[in-house]
Simulated scan of single mutants.
Amino acid sequence: MSTTMTPTQLERFQVKLLKERADAEERFAEFGDVMSEVRAARSGASADDEHDPEGPTMTQEWSQRSAVLADARAELSNVDRALARIADGTYGICSRCGKRIAVARLEARPTAELCIDCARLVG
């Protein structure tokens, strides 16, 4: 089944997805640099640095930054899959049931692979 979206709609979603991708790449690059700084600080940290009552420990910093990087990596993957669906003509079609995904849902979540009914079933 191919998408029933108009070329204008598909182009609008593609632009939106490319912007999301650029934002995620920027976050990924920014936090990758910060991770290098935290890694360097952790390797040179003394035991006292890990127990500083004034702020988070290096381990906490590492965990928080790792989570942000993982989120950015997942977002990049989701955006790339959505862009591939635009390219192959299946964007806006539920990958589970094959029905059309509502445009309003795609406006809210342009990377959505499932229609709202299927998302409720699996989520």
Rank of each mutant, 00 (worst) to 15 (best):
G44Y: 04
A82F: 04
A74M: 09
G92L: 04
P7Y: 02
D52K: 05
R85A: 13
V103R: 06
L18W: 04
P53W: 06
G44P: 02
A40W: 10
A47Q: 13
A74H: 11
T111C: 09
G92P: 03
I93R: 11
P56E: 14
Q14D: 11
Q9A: 10
C97E: 04
V79M: 09
Q60I: 05
Q60P: 01
A40Q: 12
C115V: 00
C118Q: 03
A102S: 11
M1I: 08
A67D: 10
A112F: 00
R105F: 02
R81E: 14
S46C: 02
A72C: 07
D52C: 03
V122C: 00
T8E: 15
Y91Q: 07
L106G: 08
A119S: 06
T90Y: 06
S36E: 14
L83W: 08
A104Q: 12
E11F: 08
K19D: 13
D52I: 06
D80I: 01
C94T: 07
G44A: 13
R39S: 12
V38I: 15
S43K: 12
G32T: 04
R85L: 05
E20D: 08
R109I: 14
I116P: 02
A24Y: 03
E30W: 10
R73M: 10
E113W: 01
D88T: 08
G98H: 06
E30N: 11
L106W: 01
S46A: 12
R42C: 07
F31H: 15
E54Y: 05
A87C: 05
E107H: 04
Y91W: 09
R120Y: 00
L121M: 10
T90N: 07
A112D: 00
A108G: 02
S66A: 15
T6Q: 08
A24C: 09
R120N: 08
A119K: 15
L10S: 01
M58L: 14
H51R: 12
E50P: 00
M1V: 10
D71V: 13
D48F: 04
R21C: 02
G55N: 09
